[in-house]
Computed example of a mutant assay.
Amino acid sequence: MRTIEISNEIFGKIWSASVEGDKSENDILARMFAEREFLAEVEAEPEHVETKTIQVKSHERTITIPRIGKITWIDDVALALDHIGGKGHLAEIYKSVRAIRSRGGRSLPPSTEAVIRKTLEENSSDSDAYKGGMDLFALPEGKGRGMWALRYAN
């Protein structure tokens, strides 16, 4: 390890960029540099529509996520919900999305939680923020409870 001298102001800025899981200045800076490098790359994948079949409580259900090009927040949020059983509280979803994006080498900006909420809300007809189009997510316990679920096709 090397030692560097920085001002208190810069030290504070480093820690203001911390997210859950950061334990040191090195963790924060390594994550920030990785995000910056990732954003500079172009992630190319073949165009396709992914159909995912999910086993839930012994009933097979299907969710279809149209995807053109790179993996999106919608893909990661849907996959995170799938990983936690198709339904979960925002805190569980945040944790699962972070793990998926970290493993995939995708960005985790300081606003990650806000991006996840926006993705859920804009893609759920249960939400006032619904933009039309894909209706992938549901509020199984109603608004304001923090519980979200995948909306499965029949």
Score class of each variant (00 low, 15 high):
residue 1 M to D: 13
residue 9 E to V: 13
residue 12 G to T: 12
residue 15 W to E: 11
residue 16 S to C: 08
residue 18 S to L: 02
residue 19 V to K: 09
residue 21 G to L: 08
residue 25 E to P: 14
residue 28 I to L: 05
residue 28 I to A: 06
residue 31 R to F: 08
residue 33 F to W: 07
residue 34 A to S: 11
residue 35 E to H: 12
residue 37 E to Q: 09
residue 37 E to K: 11
residue 39 L to P: 03
residue 40 A to N: 15
residue 41 E to G: 02
residue 41 E to Y: 04
residue 42 V to F: 02
residue 43 E to S: 10
residue 43 E to G: 06
residue 43 E to C: 01
residue 44 A to Q: 11
residue 44 A to K: 09
residue 46 P to T: 10
residue 47 E to F: 13
residue 47 E to V: 07
residue 48 H to M: 15
residue 48 H to E: 09
residue 49 V to D: 12
residue 52 K to T: 10
residue 56 V to W: 03
residue 61 R to K: 14
residue 63 I to F: 00
residue 66 P to A: 06
residue 68 I to V: 13
residue 68 I to H: 02
residue 69 G to I: 05
residue 70 K to N: 05
residue 71 I to C: 02
residue 71 I to W: 03
residue 73 W to I: 09
residue 74 I to R: 08
residue 77 V to E: 11
residue 77 V to K: 01
residue 80 A to M: 02
residue 81 L to W: 01
residue 82 D to F: 01
residue 83 H to Y: 06
residue 85 G to D: 11
residue 90 L to S: 08
residue 90 L to T: 11
residue 92 E to S: 15
residue 92 E to P: 04
residue 92 E to V: 02
residue 93 I to D: 00
residue 94 Y to Q: 08
residue 95 K to M: 11
residue 96 S to G: 04
residue 97 V to Q: 02
residue 97 V to T: 08
residue 97 V to H: 02
residue 100 I to P: 00
residue 101 R to G: 07
residue 103 R to E: 15
residue 103 R to A: 15
residue 105 G to L: 06
residue 106 R to M: 04
residue 107 S to Y: 00
residue 107 S to D: 05
residue 108 L to D: 03
residue 112 T to D: 14
residue 113 E to Q: 15
residue 113 E to V: 01
residue 113 E to Y: 01
residue 116 I to F: 09
residue 118 K to P: 00
residue 118 K to N: 12
residue 119 T to P: 13
residue 121 E to V: 05
residue 122 E to W: 03
residue 123 N to I: 04
residue 124 S to Q: 04
residue 125 S to C: 07
residue 127 S to T: 04
residue 128 D to K: 09
residue 128 D to I: 04
residue 129 A to G: 04
residue 130 Y to V: 05
residue 130 Y to M: 14
residue 131 K to V: 04
residue 132 G to C: 07
residue 133 G to M: 07
residue 134 M to R: 07
residue 135 D to W: 10
residue 137 F to D: 05
residue 137 F to A: 03
residue 140 P to D: 06
residue 141 E to N: 15
residue 141 E to R: 00
residue 142 G to N: 09
residue 143 K to C: 01
residue 145 R to S: 13
residue 145 R to T: 15
residue 145 R to W: 00
residue 146 G to M: 01
residue 146 G to E: 03
residue 146 G to Y: 09
residue 147 M to G: 06
residue 149 A to C: 05
residue 149 A to K: 00
residue 154 N to C: 10
residue 154 N to E: 14
